[in-house]
Structures are given as C-alpha cells and as structure tokens.
Computed example of a mutant assay.
Amino acid sequence: MSDELDLLRRANPVPADGPHFGDGPLDHRAERRLERLLAQDRPVRRAPRARLLWGLAAGGVVVVTALAALLGGPNSRPALAAPRPLTVHAHSTPVPLTELAELAAAAAADGSPRLRRGTHVQSWSLGLADGTPPVTLPEERVVRWHADDSRTELVVATDPRHPGRPVLTDAGGEPRTVADGHVLSRTTYPPSWSDAPPEAPPPHTPAALRAYLAETARTDSLDTPELLDAVRELLGHWMLGARESAALVRVLADAEGLRPAGQVTDRLGRPGQAYVYAGEGGRRMLILDPRTGAVLGLETTFGQDAPEYGVHAGDVMEYSAWMR
C-alpha cells in the first residue's frame, strides 16, 4: 500500500485545482494513469548521447529515454522546457572555415595557450517521457589530471542561464530539483594512461589530427557527423592548445556539408562563428571562437516532430559549451 501511495503522490493524478479533492474518488483518467504507473517500472536514466540519437534519427527513428516521474505534487516547480536553439545574428557575415583557419594559424604562432589534459564543460541534455513535457538537465563537469596521472572529476548541477535558481537533475536515479551549484559527484580515479585516442595527446598537424580523429571514431572514412562526434569525444579528454585548435579548423574546412552560417552568441555569452551541418535526422551547429578557432560549443537539434514526447523539429536535443 505504501508503494502505491508513493507512486500516486509522484504522479499527482488529483491536482489541487482539479475537480476531486482530498480522499474523493479518482476519475477514469487518474485510475488509468495509476494503473499504468503500477504496471511499469522503468529505470530513470539520462537521455542517450548525441551520437546514438543522431544515427537513429537519421533513419527516421527518434529514440529517447523515459523519466519515470517528473516531480509530482501541487507545490512542485514546473518542469523546465528545452532551451531555444541558438540563432544567427541578423546581417552578420559568415566567415568561411578556410579563412578562419588562417586566423587560427596566425593566433597560434606563439604556441599559447598550450594543450592541457582534462576538460571543463557545461552541458544541457534533454530528458523525455510519454505524455509529459520535455525537461532540460543542465550540469557542469570539470576533470583535472594530477602529476601522478590520477584525475579528479567534479560534477555540479548549475545552469548559467538562470543563476541562483534551483536546477533539475536525475543524478541518483530520481528526478528532483537541487540548489544551484549542488555537487552531484566528486570522484578521484587512480593513475591511468593510454597511448590510443582520445586518451593519447592529439597531434597539432591537420593530417595527423584527422587520422587521430578517425581512430577515435573507429572508422577509416570519416564523414562529417562522425567527425563532429570525434571532436566532442576529444574535448571530453583534452583542452586543446592554440596549435591543436588551428589544426582542427583545417580539418573541419575539408568536411563536406559543414557550411558557415554567421555570428552567434553562445549560451555562456561568448561571441562565436557558427558552422552548420544539416542531415536527414536534424541539425548540428558548431560554434568556434572567431579569433582563434577554438571550439566553444556544439548544439544538436531535432530534425522532425515527435509529438508523443512534446518535441518539435528544431528543438534542442543536446548542447555542450567548453571552457578552459
């Protein structure tokens, strides 16, 4: 009986402003919803990463993970909707990647900043469930390596779009709100090293870096979606130096279908140049620093409606913003 009551409280089939109050009977809709909740025991998981979603969406199928319940109760904060996609500034001039590559090479002449192991990334990922509005799960992750090749990973619930406001998280398996800046995990890993990408240091010449990214993607023929996936994975392990960023822009300049779109302001308020790849399943927007070519962000948006999840074409599936 206690399990049923817990499920009922989270589902909130009888809201405070509904036609039934207190211990009154459930209507047919509420009874069906409670039966569905009791019949299903779906684990709470974070939505799959963009690579899996992109590949499936390209085949015409949108695969999402279910959140078992979304903060029920009449006093709960409303679910946070997906962030709006970034928009290119009106009348801004697109900068070709070949031109940006020249700027990046000039900026890298003194070799500063240098390549650094670790990452600092702010991410927003979408959680979806049948019959409920989509929710955005924001977090910040910092990975620092130490002299003995051990590393520490810190994950914090925070959303710079709404400083000081509670943040929705699914850490620990149950969706809930936590205070801005709440530490979700702090983990120290023992010394480790690998000479295979992406753990191995990336090279700083275009040809060698392209081969490195192909090995990261485990493919001999690196297409543009695989290239962008490999870049995301690389930035999960390394903060690129000026020379590596310049080499990466040269590699990106040869990518088929990655077109310049114009100037944007990223989700951390930084100016950037946007480069867009539109495939069958959706759109990816890569944001690069207009002076150095460093990767600032990567946004993935849905290419088609998924009404059963409250998702429309153009909604943001995932966004990452990298910092040093």
Rank of each mutant, 00 (worst) to 15 (best):
R218F: 05
R114Y: 06
A230M: 02
G60E: 09
A242M: 09
A196M: 02
G24H: 15
A207L: 14
E102R: 02
G279P: 05
Y189M: 01
L168T: 14
W193C: 11
R186Y: 09
P190Q: 04
V62L: 14
R84Y: 06
T216Q: 00
R218M: 06
A129H: 02
A81N: 14
L137G: 01
W145L: 07
G303F: 02
E256S: 07
D170A: 15
P74H: 03
G72N: 01
R283M: 11
R51C: 01
E299C: 09
L258A: 05
Q273P: 03
P133L: 12
G241T: 09
I287G: 06
P138D: 00
R77V: 12
R84Q: 13
G236L: 07
P202Y: 03
P201F: 07
P197K: 04
L70K: 00
A208F: 05
R243L: 02
V178C: 12
E139A: 09
L286I: 06
P43W: 05
E299V: 10
L126Q: 09
T205R: 06
T87N: 01
F21T: 12
P113S: 15
E215L: 10
P15E: 15
R267V: 10
V264C: 06
A321T: 05
G241E: 05
E153I: 13
R270K: 12
E215S: 15
S194F: 02
L222T: 03
P15M: 13
L168V: 14
R29Y: 13
D170G: 12
P134R: 07
G181E: 08
A306H: 04
D254W: 02
Q40M: 03
R176D: 14
P163W: 03
V88I: 14
T136K: 04
G55E: 11
P206R: 08
T98V: 11
W145Y: 14
A109I: 00
A90S: 14
S112W: 03
A79Y: 00
A214M: 13
R114A: 15
T219Q: 03
T177A: 13
E139S: 08
L128H: 00
T119M: 15
T224A: 04
V143H: 04
A179E: 15
S221Y: 03
P166K: 14
G241C: 08
